[in-house]
Every structure is written in structure tokens, then in C-alpha cells.
Simulated scan of single mutants.
Amino acid sequence: MAEFEAFDLLPAQIAVLDREGGIAFTNHAWDQTAEGRLPDRRWNYLEECAAAADRGCAEARAIGTGLGLVLARELDRFVATYNCPFDDRHHWFQISARPGRATDDEIGAIVMHTDVTALQYDHLTGLANRALFEAQSEFVLDVARRAGSSVGIALIDLDGFKGINDEFGHAVGDEVLVRLAQRLLSATSDKDLVARVGGDEFAIVTCAGATEVGLAGLLRNVENAFKEPFVVKGAHRYLSASVGAALFPADGKTHEDLLKTADSRMYGMKRATGGRHEKWLA
């Protein structure tokens, strides 16, 4: 379909559907993320939504219903947001669909998918935010359950950070948080997710396959991230943190259970030591 080749220049994933919901054209961005499912574009969007809905995906059911209305020319535009994990990461996408021209009986709809995961990152540090941390945690837990493997979660609460804000101001405090974020990223692997989940609170979720030894090593790396002082307006200031961790499935079967265990250990450490990470094993 030569009239749609200009879509290849766009970063969004675009598909042109026939009146029955079958794929008639996809642009390069769509093809790059389709994981080889569309070699001949013999794929029906409505059928895929129905199959996902049968597997219990409420988002797919709503998208299929909305897209069906667009194809029937009963809705001028349909927009929805859904989640889709790939490349070992959790992603959010927005789908936008519009009907084809009224004079064109062959084109049912033009569908565009845009990755909006960037909206789930903390604007100051560039780390994932709480929503993305929770979604990634649920994703890797699902992978671990099916594979019979483990996942680690760590919670980090800064000790004494308020003193930096009080002494030097919030602008300097923000700069320290940015530097700390970079240290935490350096302390973890590319497959781990580091998030800022509160003002001075951070969290880490590992990839599926984490071990007790691996999680203990991660905690040592986190502790090492606080050994060097932060230079603040020519002065050297040390930060410490209370850290608690939990390992699936030994410490909990759900995201909520793991958070509860890690949180309890983190505050137990805060009360007892005020600085170094607590031994996370029971």
C-alpha cells in the first residue's frame, strides 16, 4: 500500500486494518516490535484481543470493544492505555484508532501504538517511579513463578537527608539525590530496575533468577554506594541508608508480601543500626 509508506518515517507503531480487523499494512516501527508474528501480516487484531481477553486480560477486552466500534464506523476515535512487557521490562503503550475514509471500503481503521513508558520515570533522577517499580515487580514475579526461579526486592530509606536540605537548601538536596541515583544504577545490573519511590526513598527489583548470594552481593554494592562522601558546596557530607530486602518465594509469594517483609527489615535496621544494611536472611 504505497499510500501508507510515509508511516515508515514515524517512530510510533502503526497498522492499517481492513474492515474485519485484519492487518493490511504495518510500518517499520511496528515490524521491529512484532517479534516475528507478522511475516505475512496474516493477523487479525480483533481475534488477538479476544484471545487475550479469554486469558483474563480486561484491557484487551476493552480495546477489542473500542476497536470494533471504530471498524463499524460507530466511533470516530478510540484511545486507551495498556501495559505490555517485553525485553525483560514493563512498558506502557497508548493505542489510538480512527476509522478509514468513508469512501474507502477496504480500509477499516488506522491504529497507532505509542510507548508512553517514559511518563513513568522520576523527572528529577531519571529513575523509574513507584508505578513502574510495582509493574516491573509484578512482571518479573510472574516470570519467576512460571520458571520456578527467584526475584529479589530491596527498599532503601535515606538517613539524615533532611539535614542536607535544612543546611544547604532543596536545590542542593536535589543535586545529591541525582548523584545518588547514578551510584545506585552503577551498583546494579542492567537487568535490575532502580526506582525512586518517595522523596528520599528508593527501591530495587532484580530480574527473575536472582539468588540469595546474588541479592546479598547487591546489598553490599548498595552499601558501598554510600561509602564515598557527597561534595556539597565544597563540603564533604556523608549519607547513610537503612536497607531491607526480601527474596521470592522464600520471603513472600506476592509483591505485597515481599514489600511488607523488606519494609519490616528496613525499619528494624533503622532502629538498630541507623546506617548499614540489615542481614536480610531470616
Rank of each mutant, 00 (worst) to 15 (best):
M1D: 13
M1A: 09
A2S: 12
E3H: 12
F7H: 05
D8E: 14
A15C: 12
A15V: 12
A15K: 06
V16A: 04
R19V: 14
G21H: 09
G21E: 11
G22H: 09
I23Y: 14
I23F: 15
I23R: 12
A24P: 02
A24N: 09
F25A: 11
F25V: 08
A29I: 11
Q32F: 00
E35S: 07
R37G: 12
D40T: 08
R41C: 08
W43S: 12
N44I: 10
L46Y: 04
A51T: 09
A51M: 05
D54G: 04
G56R: 05
C57F: 05
A60L: 05
L67R: 04
G68I: 11
V70F: 00
L71S: 06
L71A: 03
A72G: 10
A72Y: 10
A72L: 05
Y82V: 03
N83T: 03
F86V: 03
R89M: 06
R89G: 12
H90W: 11
F93R: 14
G100E: 01
T103N: 11
D104G: 06
D115F: 04
D115Q: 11
L124M: 06
G126Y: 00
G126K: 12
A131D: 10
F133I: 08
F133H: 07
A135G: 13
E138W: 03
E138R: 15
F139W: 10
V140S: 01
V140I: 00
R146A: 09
R146I: 06
S150M: 10
V151H: 00
I153W: 03
A154Q: 07
I156A: 00
L158T: 02
G160T: 09
F161H: 02
K162N: 12
G163R: 14
G163P: 04
G163L: 14
D174F: 03
D174I: 01
D174K: 10
E175S: 11
E175Y: 02
V176D: 07
V176A: 04
L177H: 04
L177M: 07
L177F: 02
V178K: 15
V178Q: 14
R179F: 02
Q182D: 15
R183C: 02
K191A: 08
L193C: 10
L193P: 12
L193S: 08
D200N: 08
E201P: 12
V205P: 08
V205F: 04
T206M: 03
T206E: 04
G209H: 05
T211D: 08
L215E: 11
L215D: 10
G217R: 07
L218D: 00
R220Y: 02
N221W: 03
V222R: 00
P229S: 07
V231Q: 13
V232T: 06
V232G: 05
A235L: 09
A235W: 00
Y238E: 13
S242L: 02
A246I: 11
G252V: 05
H255K: 14
E256A: 14
L259F: 09
R265T: 07
R265D: 11
M266N: 01
G268N: 12
G268L: 10
A272C: 08
A272E: 13
G274M: 05
G274C: 06
G275C: 13
H277P: 15
H277Y: 14
L281Q: 14
L281E: 13
